[in-house]
């Protein structure tokens, strides 16, 4: 490629609309063929985030730990004595929820935030939301290192089920990607979208099991049961149960519906993105 050999390159059409129905697969292909670019964009994002900080990457752990301690304090004030693992459950909830909400915001703003690059070079635009979400997943994986001292302090067994931790984080990121790709083109037209999404991620904190757990919800009757249908219950509970040394224990209907919903969000999100992205960038 790129050599001016005797073989003349073939004429091909530029700017052909790809079929939006194939977008869920095409997005994966685009990421695969641009993986060097995705890797570099993720590195740029992660490096930029902890610049000029004496504690540097330690903040990936410190931030959720500080947040969790505040929520733990709040919970003790409100309801008295929680079980001894409660602080840990909040910490894991904060990490996974934080990853989801930052990923969602990054994906929603991925087109509006890269105007200069988009005007000067062409590559598949799905690279922007994917690398935005990817950077947050990398940071979250670093946050998850806090699990190692927890295993020691609480004398938890090291089991094969710990692999559910990265899987839970990836599942949350996957949902954020789909939802964010749905929103990114609309955000190009009206920035109200990003403010709305920011509100949703703040409000979603309370209806997701961050300060509460699936077990608590199941003791609260009909409202508690209804709360389990939130698709974020699965990834957060998956990570918590992994630390306890077991695979996720939720009703089958909840697990299946969460997986189906996540998958549908991705499918619809990539389709909307591929259909409207080219029109939307003209508004930038």
């Amino acid at each position: 490629m790129g050599q001016n050999g005797p073989t003349t390159p073939v004429l091909r059409q530029i700017g052909v609309k790809s079929n939006p129905l194939l977008a869920p697969i095409n997005t994966l292909k685009e990421v695969r063929s641009n993986r060097f670019l995705v890797r570099n964009l993720i590195r740029r994002d992660v490096r930029g985030r902890y610049r000029n900080a004496a504690l540097g990457y330690a903040w990936t752990v410190i931030e959720p730990a500080l947040l969790a301690s505040v929520y733990w304090f709040l919970f003790i004030m409100l309801s008295g004595n929680p079980d001894e693992m409660y602080a840990v459950w909040v910490l894991l909830g904060v990490i996974v929820w934080g990853s989801f909400s930052k990923s969602l915001n990054a994906a929603t703003n991925s087109l509006t935030g890269n105007v200069r690059t988009m005007h000067l070079v062409f590559f598949p635009r799905s690279i922007f939301p994917v690398s935005g979400v990817g950077a947050n997943i990398v940071v979250t994986m670093m946050s998850c290192l806090i699990i190692l001292p927890l295993l020691y302090i609480y004398e938890l067994p090291i089991t094969i089920h710990l692999v559910w931790i990265p899987i839970g984080v990836l599942l949350a990121g996957f949902m954020a990607l789909g939802f964010g790709m749905m929103m990114a083109p609309l955000n190009c037209v009206q920035r109200d979208v990003q403010h709305l999404i920011r509100f949703i991620t703040r409000a979603g904190f309370f209806v997701s099991p961050v300060m509460w757990t699936a077990e608590m919800a199941m003791e609260r009757g009909a409202w508690g049961e209804a709360a389990l249908w939130n698709p974020m219950v699965l990834p957060i509970t998956m990570v918590r149960h992994a630390l306890e040394g077991k695979s996720v224990e939720l009703p089958d209907s909840i697990v299946i519906s969460s997986l189906v919903v996540s998958f549908l969000i991705y499918v619809v999100g990539t389709m909307i993105f591929s259909k409207y992205e080219r029109g939307a960038v003209k508004y930038l």
Binding site: M1, G15, F122, K282
Partner: peptide, 27 residues
């Protein structure tokens, strides 16, 4: 020509890889 804006009407064809040199150092 480089594919950043797909045309609303008409067709663009090009042979081989294209490189747009603009705004050096983007990103």
């Amino acid at each position: 020509i480089s594919g950043i804006y797909p045309p609303d009407e008409g067709m663009v064809h090009a042979a081989g890889d294209i490189s747009l040199l603009a705004g050096l150092g983007t990103g």
